[in-house]
């Protein structure tokens, strides 16, 4: 599913970044990525989905060598194949919940029949469907986070990368959101890499990886 070899990344200001000699995630595997703040967990997720381009090494995901793709190709691949839950939710405030959920479909390959239904189901499961036609700017932090999770899953990605997606949720909703992500990914044999600091959630994952163990 995900294969990283000799990955080397430096920040544009020359600051040393991240070096991952080898790391693999199997098909349908759910991995919790832990580590101290500032260690590079978010950077690693951004490298995997092609937002950042490494200075060396390769990242391969479901047969696609992400590091060999050009910027437009990486964007197109990310939009269609990867679901990302950003730390800051990355919702468009002037769009409704429905429009935010359908955004990857609208701006990517285009919404196919039944996908709005899928979006609605996800919204139901994450208890945000009652805000279906409400603007994102009118939602609370927790509601925004759940919409961001639903958006990452709506286009049935082959890989889901989530950066602390439960930080703004209460205990019940936290568990509910993670279970939904796991269920969605496992049902389609999609990979899930989730950055978390929450020890209560770790038992739910197939594997827990500390960033310190994979970086050199």
């Amino acid at each position: 599913m995900l294969t990283i070899r000799d990955l080397d990344f430096s920040y544009p200001n020359g600051e040393s970044g991240l070096a991952v000699p080898q790391w693999d995630v199997a098909n349908g595997e759910a991995v919790a990525l832990v580590g101290p703040s500032g260690a590079g967990k978010t950077t690693l997720l951004k490298l995997i989905c092609g937002i950042h381009q490494p200075s060396g090494g390769t990242i391969e995901c479901v047969g696609v060598t992400v590091t060999a793709l050009s910027d437009p190709e990486r964007r197109a691949w990310r939009l269609r194949k990867v679901g990302v839950v950003f730390q800051d939710f990355a919702l468009m405030d002037y769009l409704t919940v429905r429009e935010n959920l359908l955004l990857p479909l609208r701006l990517g390959a285009g919404a196919r029949a039944g996908e709005e239904g899928h979006a609605r189901t996800l919204a139901d499961q994450l208890e945000v469907s009652r805000y279906w036609n409400k603007l994102a700017s009118e939602l609370s932090q927790g509601e925004r986070q759940r919409v961001a999770i639903a958006r990452a899953l709506v286009h049935r990605p082959v890989l889901v990368l989530a950066d602390e997606p439960t930080a703004s949720l209460d205990a019940t909703r936290k568990s509910q959101a993670v279970r939904l992500m796991l269920e969605e990914c496992r049902s389609r044999q999609a990979g899930l890499v989730m950055v978390t600091h929450d020890p209560e959630l770790l038992p739910l994952f197939d594997r827990v990886v500390s960033l310190e163990d994979i970086v050199s």
């Binding site: 964007r75 197109a76 691949w77 950003f86 701006l107």
Partner: peptide, 8 residues
């Protein structure tokens, strides 16, 4: 943000 989602 749109670029990070993958919008060209």
């Amino acid at each position: 943000t749109l670029a990070e989602i993958g919008v060209g």
